[in-house]
């Protein structure tokens, strides 16, 4: 899930630069979600947003990692 609070957005365009799937674009000097289905929730945009305007449910879409961390509750990487 990804959400942008446009009242906080300062139009620095960093989020559009760091997104690997071009989910975001600038419109009227504010960031806007244009390809929500392409978002993989990596949180590159949220992490690099200096005004905390972006909220993302951060996670890695990897079955093994989800089983290890979310189901078995074991820390560490998937491989």
């Amino acid at each position: 899930m990804i959400e942008i609070d446009q009242t906080k957005c300062i139009g620095c365009i960093v989020c559009t630069k760091v997104c690997p799937h071009q989910v975001l674009a600038m419109k009227n000097h504010k960031a806007e979600i244009i390809n929500p289905d392409k978002c993989i929730e990596c949180d590159a945009c949220g992490l690099n947003c200096s005004s905390n305007a972006i909220k993302v449910t951060k996670g890695t879409g990897c079955f093994w990692l989800i089983v290890k961390q979310d189901i078995l509750k074991r820390p560490g990487s998937c491989c």
Binding site: M1, P20, H21, K38, C39, I40, E41, T57, K58, G59, T60, G61, C62, F63, W64, L65, I66, D70, C78
Partner: peptide, 15 residues
């Protein structure tokens, strides 16, 4: 398993 291989897997959807 292929979710770990692909470049398009969304965390919430895979969960």
């Amino acid at each position: 398993s292929y979710t770990g291989n692909s470049a398009i897997s969304n965390y919430s959807k895979v969960k």
